[in-house]
């Protein structure tokens, strides 16, 4: 019995320690907590500003329904939305759905009942946006979807979609690889989790380019589930298969890094070009050292800024020609990698 109590104590102490360590590191990593704080301050700080400018012209109010505040990449998007909001002197109310569809729907309904002038939406799940759009449509409030592209039927109901096209990402990634290979060589494609929109379209972009070059040959395609470890395993098996790969084109950077590690261990990295997508900080290190030849940068700041500006147009009732607004991917190579280190604040 006594032994059990000792064990129980050890467990509790450890759990508390682990939790505190977790919180500690979270504070260190300030940027991940930042959006929620600044979201609050931006909405509350705007109240006195409203009084100052108020009078002849009503200040625009924009609701932003965001999927999850605790996400590194999205935090840059939130920050740039807020920056653009203060520059354009509009009132931005940003809420966190904590990655829950239902919460997001409720938040959208709240925006509708508050009669905001426009809504910015980054959906938790693109398949679940229809009821949210219906609510807004009924109240005649325009919706701008950012970053995650909803399906065709939903596109009809929105004012605009601002994002980076996965198809374009796959295309520019492959084009750069083709250029480095001189339009000739054997290609292996590593897929993310099968069935996802980004996987389908990024891969399609790759294949469209390969089809243009008669001497580029797609010899292998398999999934590594977005994971570095699985990318490594897959690459090892491909190396053993005896096939000669001139380039490995991965749907994201993590799998590309896994491939690099396997190729390096086999002494074949210098003969193989590896390409990824995303431009994560880790990946930039690999680009800098020349191991990762290509990655495509999806620009959170660009999407945030353009998204908010589009929402303002929507709120003012302006007409736009094309509701598909592309914030292009940018190709990162060792030549321009330093620019992107700066973007990430490193």
């Amino acid at each position: 019995m006594r032994k059990n109590k000792v064990w129980a104590l050890v467990f509790i102490v450890t759990l508390i320690a682990a939790t505190m360590a977790g919180c500690g590191s979270d504070k260190k990593n300030a940027s991940s907590n930042e959006p929620s704080d600044s979201a609050k301050s931006s909405s509350s700080a705007s109240a006195p500003a409203d009084g100052k400018t108020g009078g002849e012209k009503k200040k625009l109010k924009i609701g932003a329904a965001m999927p999850i505040f605790d996400d590194k990449w999205l935090s840059y998007l939130y920050d740039s939305m807020k920056k653009a909001a203060s520059e354009n002197d509009v009132d931005l109310v940003m809420v966190d759905a904590k990655n829950d569809n239902n919460t997001q729907l409720t938040q959208m309904e709240t925006f509708v009942s508050e009669k905001v002038d426009a809504i910015l939406l980054v959906p938790v799940q693109t398949e679940a946006v229809d009821p949210m759009l219906e609510a807004a449509k009924a109240a005649n409030i325009p919706v701008v979807v950012v970053n995650r592209k909803p399906n065709e039927s939903a596109l009809k109901d929105i004012y605009a979609y601002v994002g980076s096209d996965s198809l374009v990402a796959g295309t520019i990634q492959m084009e750069k690889v083709a250029e480095l290979l001189g339009g000739k060589g054997n290609i292996g494609i590593m897929n993310g989790q099968l069935g996802q929109e980004a996987v389908v379209n990024r891969t399609q972009g790759n294949k469209n380019v390969i089809a243009k070059y008669p001497d580029l040959k797609l010899i292998r395609e398999a999934t590594a589930n977005w994971q570095r470890s699985e990318g490594m395993t897959l690459m090892e098996n491909w190396i053993q298969s005896g096939e000669k790969f001139d380039a490995i084109v991965a749907n994201n950077d993590e799998m590309a890094i896994g491939a690099i590690m396997a190729l390096e261990a086999a002494g074949k990295l210098d003969k193989t070009i590896v390409a990824g997508i995303d431009g994560t900080v880790d990946a930039l290190d690999y680009v800098k050292s020349g191991k990762l030849k290509v990655t495509a940068f999806q620009d959170p700041m660009g999407q945030g800024k353009v998204g908010l500006e589009t929402a303002i147009k929507a709120a003012r009732g302006e007409k736009i020609d094309n509701k598909m607004i592309d914030v292009p991917f940018e190709v990162i190579t060792p030549d321009n990698v330093d620019v992107y280190f700066k973007k990430w604040g490193k």
Binding site: A18, G22, S25, D26, D70, K72, D282, D285
Partner: peptide
């Protein structure tokens, strides 16, 4: 907990002696 602790990001820059465990 893993996501919370890491802030959702990978943690790189590891000690060579630690890497021996895998390599």
């Amino acid at each position: 907990l893993a996501l919370l602790y890491s802030g959702g990001r990978p943690i790189g820059n590891l000690n060579e002696s630690f890497l021996v465990l895998g390599k």
